[in-house]
């Protein structure tokens, strides 16, 4: 009797309309045998241990960010809890004139905002076109994108750098340069939202076209309102990506400290500069970056879940 309960039971369902995973209370009493209880106990133990492992680095990060730079040490130390809690690191980051942190933060935010808008437009245009419109060369475009996608991204890095340099978009111009690079080819990442569009019945388009809508009107009036989850997913992804990019950002902004993004700046603190001195500042910077991003992400989690699960199933 007890064994049957070990199946991954359907007591949670994906609510496609709301785009969330929802738990459904199953009515009826279930007798809990000892075996069942032992199994559940084991699972709880595993989950608690996992939670500790998963959360620990972030908790440590927060702890260390509050360690006083002045009275203790800015480097790595052999203990976890700060002897004296202080806001030294944060104050230094935000107010000291040698700190470019606010500038980096602003740079990254600007890049992220622009990307969120432009990339979303690009991705939606491409995915909608490839999903709904039939025209000569459609298959060709999809195959070309597939082949291009197999080339490693960094291969083209120096070419892009020199292209940007020709346009004056490196070092001092790194911010618009990075926006250009992030957005220019973003249409290639159309797969997930195309998968979403593919699930909207074609008869809706057809019906609208018979009703007198042009294809542009179908796009704006019918498909876009229905695509809200995938629009949010795309915006979220486009907004988050620039916060973590080190490689291109460091290459394009090379040597021009005011034009770094947070990833480049903080990475250089720990790896290029003497990290022993800047470790706690790195932690504090990391906290300042991670908190808003994580909050945003968790708030929009359901759209993310829908995007990745849909994407994985669709391929």
């Amino acid at each position: 009797m007890s064994k049957k309960n070990e199946v991954p039971e359907v007591d949670i369902v994906i609510d496609h309309e709301a785009g969330v995973i929802r738990e459904v209370k199953q009515p009826g009493l279930r007798s809990k045998s000892g075996h069942e209880r032992r199994v559940n106990g084991g699972i709880y133990t595993v989950l608690v241990i996992m939670s500790i492992i998963w959360l620990a680095p972030f908790v440590f990060l927060v702890f260390q960010s509050f360690r006083s730079y002045i009275t203790e040490s800015g480097g790595m130390v052999a203990y976890l809890l700060p002897k004296q809690w202080s806001l030294d690191n944060y104050i230094w980051l935000l107010t000291d004139e040698k700190s470019h942190f606010l500038q980096w933060y602003g740079n990254t935010l600007i890049i992220a905002l622009f990307c969120a808008v432009i990339q979303t437009l690009m991705v939606l245009s491409v995915s909608y076109t490839l999903s709904r419109l039939r025209f000569k060369g459609r298959k060709l475009i999809m195959n070309v994108v597939l082949v291009l996608g197999m080339f490693p991204g960094f291969l083209t890095m120096i070419t892009l750098y020199f292209l940007l340099k020709q346009l004056g978009l490196t070092q001092q111009g790194a911010i618009p340069g990075l926006i250009l690079i992030y957005c220019a080819s973003s249409g290639m990442g159309y797969y997930i939202s195309k998968g979403f569009f593919d699930t909207i019945p074609k008869s809706l388009d057809e019906s609208a076209r018979i009703d007198g809508a042009t294809r542009a009107q179908v796009f704006m009036k019918i498909i876009m309102p229905l695509a809200k989850p995938i629009v949010i997913y795309t915006i979220l992804m486009a907004f988050m990506a620039p916060w973590g990019d080190y490689v291109f950002a460091s290459y394009v902004a090379f040597g021009s400290e005011p034009n770094y993004n947070v990833a480049v700046g903080l990475y250089r603190w720990v790896n290029v500069n003497d990290y022993q001195g800047f470790f706690t500042r790195f932690c504090a910077g990391g906290v300042l970056v991670a908190v808003p991003i994580t909050a945003l992400f968790l708030a929009l989690q359901k759209y993310y879940v829908e995007g990745v699960t849909g994407g994985a199933v669709k391929g």
């Binding site: 019945p201 008869s203 809706l204 057809e206 019906s207 076209r209 018979i210 009703d211 007198g212």
Partner: peptide, 15 residues
Amino acid sequence: EPKDRDIAMVFQNYA
């Protein structure tokens, strides 16, 4: 184009 044919259509899945 369908919109200029002055027709109306009812679909199987209602659409």
